[in-house]
Amino acid sequence: MFNRRKPVLLVLVAMLLLLTAACSNKGKDSDKLTTVKFSEVIRSIFYAPHYVAMSQGFFKDQGLNVDMNTSQGSDKGAAALIAGTADISLVGPETSIYIYNQKGDKTLKVFHQLTSKDGSFLLSREKLDDFKWSDLQGKTIIGWRPGSAPQMVLNSMLIKEQVKDAKVITNLAAPAMAGAFASGQGDFIQLFEPVASTLVKEGKAYYAASLGEAFGPFPETSYVATSDYIKANPKIIQKFTNAVAEGAKWLNTASDADIAKALAPFFEGTPEDLILQSVERYKSQDTWPTNPELTQAQFDTLQNVLIENGVLKSEEKVANMDDIVDMSFVKNIGKSD
Rank of each mutant, 00 (worst) to 15 (best):
D61E: 15
S71F: 04
T115K: 04
L276D: 06
L64C: 03
A178T: 02
R4I: 12
G143Y: 05
N320Y: 11
I141A: 01
S55W: 00
G84H: 10
Q238D: 05
S197A: 14
M177R: 08
W288Q: 10
K331Y: 03
K239V: 01
A319V: 13
M321K: 15
I45H: 08
H112K: 12
M54R: 14
A209D: 06
P219V: 03
E268G: 10
Y282Q: 08
E126V: 09
V11N: 04
I237D: 08
N65P: 01
P289Q: 02
M15Y: 11
I169D: 04
R125C: 05
P194Y: 10
A232M: 12
E202F: 12
Y223D: 07
A174C: 01
S210C: 06
S39G: 08
A79W: 10
K103T: 02
W288G: 09
G73K: 04
L108P: 07
K76R: 15
Q151F: 09
T170G: 00
A166K: 13
V195R: 03
Q303R: 05
D130L: 12
S134I: 09
S116T: 08
S44A: 15
V52T: 04
K249C: 02
N233H: 15
M321H: 07
K26H: 12
L154W: 01
V325W: 09
M54Q: 15
S197T: 11
T70D: 04
V153M: 09
T253I: 11
P175G: 02
P175S: 02
T115V: 10
S55R: 00
E213F: 03
S30P: 00
K331C: 02
L9R: 14
F131K: 10
A196E: 01
S71A: 15
D129G: 11
D256E: 15
N25E: 13
D67E: 11
K26Q: 13
A79D: 14
T226H: 07
M68A: 06
T95G: 02
Q137F: 12
T301V: 13
N155Q: 14
G184K: 09
K335F: 11
W144P: 02
I189V: 13
P146R: 05
F181R: 06
W288P: 13
A173P: 03
F131E: 07
I169W: 10
V110R: 06
P292H: 07
V195F: 00
A319I: 12
V279K: 07
N155M: 08
M15V: 14
G147E: 08
S24K: 05
V311N: 06
G184T: 03
Q113A: 11
N304Q: 15
R43C: 09
Q151V: 01
V311E: 06
T241G: 07
G212Q: 08
N65R: 10
S71W: 06
Q238R: 06
L17V: 13
F218Q: 03
G63M: 12
L108Q: 03
A245F: 09
